[in-house]
């Protein structure tokens, strides 16, 4: 299992690196797709099958598609011009490396106890939790959906390009 996780981890990391470094935005978006699939795979390994499918369906199927559409729509503005990555790569790199070091330093020393016989969460339990204990966040998320839709429509339709 560790081998599987390692392989998937390698895939994810490589793709993530492509996402943040590739100049071509389209290719960066596609790399994101790879990342998402890798993460879905990891979900599977972690016995969260439902979540893996949701990840694929929603993330890759909808969100990534949306991103690609947006890229297409805005590419006219810039043309397929080089996306000069970054303003301050050194600083950003330093900062993120520091952050990584920090996080690792915090998490590595933790010895993960081998918990015997803890079963994975069955889907039924998840469903049940969602409509009993977690019903409030559930409903709030639907509200957020509504707000996001209304907001997006409002933003996208109200702006008129100003006169130069």
């Amino acid at each position: 299992m560790v081998v599987l996780i390692a392989a998937l981890a390698a895939l994810v990391l490589m793709s993530a690196l492509w996402v943040v470094t590739l100049r071509n935005l389209f290719r960066a978006a596609l790399s994101l797709g790879l990342v998402l699939i890798g993460v879905a795979g990891l979900f599977l390994v972690l016995e969260a099958e439902f979540l893996a499918f949701v990840q694929i369906l929603v993330y890759v199927g909808a969100i990534l598609t949306l991103v690609v559409f947006a890229i297409m729509l805005t590419s006219k503005v810039q043309g397929r011009a080089p996306d000069v990555s970054s303003r301050q790569p050194a600083v950003a790199g330093a900062v993120s490396l520091t952050l990584f070091a920090l996080l690792t330093a915090v998490t590595q020393p933790i010895v993960w106890a081998q918990a015997p016989g803890v079963a994975a969460v069955p889907l039924a339990t998840l469903g049940q939790q969602l409509v009993t204990t977690l019903v409030l966040p559930f409903e709030v998320v639907s509200l957020v959906f509504v707000a996001a839709m209304v907001g997006a429509i409002a933003i996208a339709t109200s702006t008129r390009p100003p006169e130069r």
């Binding site: 303003r87 600083v91 900062v95 993120s96 920090l102 330093a105």
Partner: peptide, 22 residues
């Protein structure tokens, strides 16, 4: 006025604080 500048500051502050709190 550039967002990333502010973000940078945020991240740096968080890192610094965490180190300090550690």
């Amino acid at each position: 006025g550039i967002i990333q500048q502010s973000l940078l500051v945020v991240v740096v502050s968080v890192v610094a604080l965490s180190i300090a709190l550690l």
